[in-house]
Amino acid sequence: MLSEIYRVLKPNGNFCLTFAEEDFMKTLPFTQFEFELYSTEKAQELIKKSDFKIVYTETQTEQVKSKTGELVERAFTTIVLEK
């Protein structure tokens, strides 16, 4: 998928990839079925195999309401890539 995004991105274009961290996603019951979960390190290793250059990486947390209505901390990462 990264190769195709790189191919269609304009020269010097940026691509922002944001995902919930693997540790959080493992707590969700549906992710045990055919989901590939990523940590920041795992995503960066995959990106290094592509032609993209990593410009910036930031991990943040936010409080979100779960299906049961309780507040939970969700960690997510944004990685800015450049062609």
Score class of each variant (00 low, 15 high):
residue 1 M to C: 12
residue 2 L to T: 02
residue 3 S to M: 07
residue 3 S to P: 04
residue 4 E to T: 15
residue 5 I to P: 04
residue 5 I to F: 14
residue 6 Y to P: 02
residue 6 Y to S: 12
residue 7 R to E: 14
residue 8 V to H: 02
residue 10 K to C: 08
residue 10 K to V: 11
residue 10 K to M: 08
residue 10 K to W: 01
residue 11 P to D: 10
residue 12 N to P: 02
residue 13 G to M: 09
residue 13 G to P: 02
residue 13 G to W: 01
residue 14 N to K: 12
residue 15 F to H: 05
residue 15 F to R: 07
residue 16 C to E: 10
residue 16 C to A: 13
residue 18 T to G: 02
residue 19 F to N: 01
residue 20 A to T: 09
residue 20 A to V: 11
residue 20 A to F: 00
residue 21 E to M: 07
residue 22 E to Y: 02
residue 24 F to Q: 00
residue 26 K to C: 11
residue 28 L to P: 00
residue 29 P to K: 07
residue 32 Q to H: 13
residue 32 Q to A: 14
residue 33 F to A: 14
residue 33 F to Y: 15
residue 33 F to E: 15
residue 33 F to H: 14
residue 37 L to H: 03
residue 38 Y to I: 01
residue 40 T to W: 04
residue 40 T to Y: 02
residue 40 T to R: 02
residue 41 E to Q: 13
residue 41 E to A: 13
residue 41 E to W: 03
residue 42 K to Q: 05
residue 44 Q to R: 06
residue 44 Q to C: 10
residue 45 E to Q: 15
residue 45 E to G: 10
residue 45 E to D: 15
residue 47 I to V: 14
residue 47 I to L: 07
residue 48 K to F: 08
residue 49 K to W: 03
residue 50 S to T: 14
residue 50 S to R: 03
residue 53 K to W: 00
residue 56 Y to R: 13
residue 57 T to S: 14
residue 57 T to C: 15
residue 58 E to V: 12
residue 61 T to S: 15
residue 61 T to Y: 12
residue 61 T to W: 09
residue 61 T to N: 15
residue 64 V to K: 13
residue 64 V to Y: 01
residue 67 K to Y: 09
residue 67 K to S: 14
residue 68 T to P: 06
residue 68 T to F: 05
residue 68 T to Q: 09
residue 70 E to R: 13
residue 71 L to E: 11
residue 75 A to R: 03
residue 76 F to D: 05
residue 77 T to N: 00
residue 78 T to R: 11
residue 79 I to D: 00
residue 83 K to V: 07
residue 83 K to T: 10
